[in-house]
């Protein structure tokens, strides 16, 4: 049996930590952000790349889930078309609270280069968005930085309060 010595006086050595409920809940929420795979177009490929070998999203506790019931954050990666718009609303409604939305890439932010009859000009017309990532397509690093900013945002909130409805443009 392995023997190890625990230095209780050192930082993190104590098996006891005193904190507030807020902090512990937010710590749990912010460090296991499970993302709903909402790969719609090109950005979805970069989202996959950020989950794959080189960028390895798992180390941030971010695991892609296929079901909205298991997801905390919806990463809308790609162009949202008018035909698809109702489904994004349905899936957003199916997510359990607290829930967040990251709009990834120009198309999801504003419609981007597709200023045409068939694209929704920004996903924030349908669902409220917490974070907008620029780029066409954003690099995996951008997505990872975005998720870290989301973690910061989660930690800044009171855990006990119900989420207020967000501004919809």
């Amino acid at each position: 049996m392995a023997q190890h010595k625990v230095n209780y006086t050192q930082d993190g050595g104590l098996p006891v930590a005193l904190t507030s409920i807020d902090k512990i809940v937010n710590w749990g929420r912010s460090n296991s952000i499970w993302a709903l795979t909402y790969g719609l177009a090109c950005c979805g490929i970069e989202m996959m790349a950020s989950g794959a070998s080189r960028y390895d999203f798992d180390r941030f506790g971010t695991i892609f889930r296929a079901s909205p019931r298991q997801a905390d954050v919806m990463i809308v990666a790609g162009t949202l078309t008018k035909k698809h718009a109702e489904f994004i609303k349905r899936l957003y409604d199916q997510m359990t609270e607290p829930r967040w939305v990251i709009s990834m890439g120009s198309c999801a932010n504003t419609g981007g280069m597709f200023n045409t009859y068939a694209t929704v000009q920004g996903v924030d017309r349908i669902i409220p968005v917490d974070l907008y990532l620029p780029g066409c397509a954003p690099r995996p690093e951008t997505l990872q930085y975005g998720v870290m900013l989301l973690q910061k945002k989660i930690r800044a909130n009171k855990a006990g309060n119900a989420q207020k409805p967000k501004r919809l443009m």
Partner: peptide
């Protein structure tokens, strides 16, 4: 299909 129709031919 058509859930990603972005109107490229029109563009």
């Amino acid at each position: 299909v058509g859930y990603l129709h972005r109107g490229m031919e029109k563009m």
